[in-house]
Design a protein around this nucleic acid. Structure first.
Length: 755
DNA sequence: CGTATATATCTTTTT
DNA sequence: GATATATACG
């Protein structure tokens, strides 16, 4: 097979494709057959190599589109790749298997669902449902969910699935002490329950593929014949189950090409194993390894700063990025700036943005990259204030909103009556007079008969097990579902959606709701109906939602981009703002607590990813104070700031780190940088100061007498509900307060303010 | 049964 | 500060 393909003379299209590639890139494209590992540093034209390689394989007649499998991590990357190949080839890439691991896994699973115990219309459940289900499992097993939270078990099980372990494959040593060693039993229960619900979670999409391939070699052989060329993007982020999946599929043609960069591995917390890169040559003997080291993206200063930072990591494969730019074209150094708090941080970034805007920079050439989602808030507020348009990528996603999830639950139940999770969500939304008690009764009956909630309901409405009034509500619900299901077969999804939302009373529920969010929710529901118009069938739509989770937000509008560092991978911008470089925030304390040195290195790689997103300019900021959980916290600059090489950075004045004035007296805010050893002790200190603006516009920081600490006996306090009062006694954070109007009450300190 | 109020917990990153 | 869960009351 290799011989024949090498004899194919590249048509002119194919040779044209190679024109604008450098030597290493071309080698990576031309090594079309056999296993290839491409180690591609940031900005070395990785996506280009991938897309040209795909086009090249097609253009040289090695494979038809339907014989190619291209796997990415994000839907965004898949979309982009599809567009670029279409552009290169001058026609759309129909028929190619291009998508995320999960999307392709789901597609394969639907075709063979019966072989692994599911029906082909199985539901893909998201985290929220997963958590709900897990909670039910834990409670059913008589375990205290308070002590052993469902969230924790969900993570444990997800990590097992990442490793490719079905319940009977989990090593005894890995079981851990969750619920006194019950985790494995619970995992088993959970899988059983998923089967009953005809549902799969994200991990299952791959895990059940593995099961399918191993139990049915004929099916695997079929895919061996089908997939003649396999391409994998972001290989450093594959977990074991993805790795096993790839290895099984690649055993057929051996034409597998993986592209990755160990320095950009940032999903270890999700089970990714950088080791997969190192294992590649062992698993595919004779694999070609090609390094892309010439960077086309960033200025020498940015590259120098990023390289200097990542050099602090041990155990890298080692790559040296270089660029052709001369030293006199080194570009701006990376600017580092300290600020007082997150508000000033946002203000500073806003000023830089306006400044660049005056120099005719486009807003969409700029990005603010944060460590965690909650950090976007301060920037959003500021950008709104100064009237700069922005878009938040990722963040609070459309399909995670309450009203959208409710609507989806209706559709899910229409498609798939076994979906008890959907049933529970909407059976009494809007209110149908079915409270906890009636539903509990229903659950018991259903469980007793081994039926789904919907089929149990169908029977119950004909008996007198429920009081008449409740029975009527339930009957109405069950009949509606049936009616809609009958309509689903011949109506387009968007029309069906309108009928369902209207007849169920769901839209009506929000129309009478007088809360401030209600109009927005109605707007979102309309948007949902609009989005559904693009789909042929309800099935297609539901799959799209489960796997994509986001509505297409890549409008070409000129807006500043705000997103997490994780979401920024694979993107590039002229100017990048990197706020929140403080110990505890970035590197994130939890990452270090949970994974120690490994966690720290992953954080450092995140920093490297952030810096290398910048083409021309990067700004690093750190704030002395920040509210976390509504409480003030003071932080010291991130160790990563020290690690940036002096040659490529400019360390600005640390505003708010010196003397501030308070009506004539001088206060020194304790912001001198402590020795490293002191960092821990300083981490959670609450600072007692707030900003105050004076007549001349100058802003100063005034220490607050008792701050947000616990009020003492004798203090006057204010409570939202009870009004003013005096503290009569304290018990930890509980206060005994004599309110002027409401009398004596015990209240938590969090609920009162100093008066 | 539904609503209002009171408390608890939470935030790392995502397919 | 926001949102789920627990409790009290109508």
């Amino acid at each position: 097979m290799n011989e024949t393909s090498q004899t194919i003379a590249p048509p002119s299209v194919a040779s044209h494709l190679l024109d604008r590639l450098n030597e290493a890139q071309r080698a990576a494209v031309e090594a079309a057959d056999g296993p290839v590992l491409v180690l591609a540093g940031a900005g070395t034209g990785k996506t280009r190599v991938l897309t040209v390689r795909l086009a090249y394989i097609l253009a040289t007649g090695r494979a038809a589109p339907g014989q190619m499998l291209a796997v990415t991590f994000t839907n965004k990357a898949a979309r982009e790749m599809s567009e670029r190949i279409g552009h290169l080839m001058g026609r759309p890439t129909d028929g190619m298997w291009l998508g995320t691991f999960h999307a392709i896994g789901a597609r394969i699973l639907r075709r063979h669902a019966e072989l692994v115990g599911l029906k082909s219309n199985f539901t893909i459940i998201d985290q929220d449902d997963q958590l709900r289900l897990m909670k039910q499992i834990i409670e059913a097993a008589g375990i205290d969910e308070k002590r052993w939270p469902a969230r924790m078990l969900t993570t444990i099980v997800a990590r097992w699935k990442d490793k490719g372990w079905m319940p009977d494959q989990v090593p005894t040593a890995e079981v851990g002490d969750f619920g006194h060693g019950k985790a494995l039993d619970l995992y088993r229960d959970y899988q059983t329950r998923l089967g009953e619900l005809n549902a799969a979670d994200f991990g299952d999409l791959l895990l059940l593929n593995l099961k399918l391939f191993m139990k049915h070699p004929d099916v695997l052989a079929d895919y061996h014949r089908r997939f003649r060329y396999i391409l994998v993007d972001e290989y450093q982020d594959t977990n074991v189950s993805q790795y096993l999946w790839l290895r099984l599929l690649a055993q057929g043609s051996k034409n597998i090409c993986c592209v990755g960069d160990d320095d950009q591995s940032i999903y270890g917390w999700r089970g990714a194993e950088v080791g997969n890169i190192l294992r590649f040559e062992e698993d595919f003997p004779g694999a070609k390894v090609i390094r892309l080291e010439r960077n086309y993206r960033s200025t020498p200063n940015i590259l120098g700063a990023a390289s200097g930072l990542i050099a602090h990591n041990q155990g890298r494969l080692g790559k040296t990025l270089w660029t052709e730019a001369k030293d006199d074209e080194a570009g701006d150094p990376v600017k580092i700036q300290g600020v007082w708090d997150e508000a000033e941080e946002a203000r500073t970034v806003g000023e830089h943005i306006e400044d660049l805007q005056r120099k005719d920079a486009r807003l969409d050439s700029m990005a603010i990259l944060v460590r965690a989602g909650y950090q976007t808030r301060a920037f959003e507020e500021r950008l709104i204030t100064i009237g700069v348009p922005y878009r938040v990528i990722g963040g609070l996603r459309f399909y995670e909103r309450q009203e959208i999830r409710d609507a989806m639950a209706y559709f899910r139940l229409i498609r798939q009556g076994d979906d008890d999770l959907a049933f529970q969500r909407i059976v009494n939304t809007p209110k149908r007079g079915l409270g906890d008690k009636s539903l509990q009764q229903l659950y018991t009956i259903a469980r007793g008969r081994g039926q789904s909630l919907l089929s149990a309901s169908e029977e119950i409405v004909t008996t007198d097990e429920l009081p008449p009034q409740r029975r009527a509500g339930l009957r109405e619900f069950v009949e509606s579902i049936h009616r809609w299901r009958a309509q689903a077969s011949h109506l387009p999804p968007s029309e069906l959606a309108e009928i369902v939302l209207d007849e169920s009373g769901y839209t009506g529920m929000w129309m009478v709701d007088k809360s401030v969010q209600a109009p927005g929710r109605l707007e979102n529901l309309k948007e949902l109906v609009r989005a559904m118009a693009e789909f042929e069938s309800l099935d297609e739509f539901l799959d799209h939602v489960s796997l994509v989770m986001d509505i297409d937000n890549n409008s070409a509008d000129d807006m500043v981009n705000v997103m997490t560092l994780h979401a920024a991978k694979g993107l590039e911008f002229d100017t990048v703002f990197l706020p929140g470089w403080e110990e505890g925030i970035f590197p994130n304390q939890m990452a270090i607590d949970e994974n120690g040195y490994k966690g720290l290195e992953e954080e450092r790689r995140l920093g490297y990813v952030g810096l290398t997103r910048a083409r021309k300019r990067a700004f690093v900021l750190y704030a002395a104070n920040r509210t976390v959980h509504g409480q003030w916290q003071n932080n010291i600059p991130s160790r990563f700031i020290d690690e940036l090489p002096d040659d490529h950075v400019e360390r600005g004045e640390a505003a708010g780190y010196g003397f501030v004035q308070d009506e004539g007296s001088l206060w020194q805010i304790a912001m001198k940088r402590p020795a490293y050893g002191n960092r821990q002790s300083n981490y959670h200190r609450v600072i007692e100061a707030r900003s105050q603006r004076f007549g001349d516009g100058q802003e100063v920081y005034v220490p607050v007498g008792r701050g947000q600490g616990v009020p003492q006996t004798g203090d006057r306090v204010f409570h939202e509900k009870f009004g003013y009062g005096m503290v009569k006694g304290t018990d930890g954070s509980k206060l005994d307060i004599a309110f002027d109007k409401a009398g004596r009450k015990k209240v938590l300190a969090d609920f009162v303010k100093p008066a």
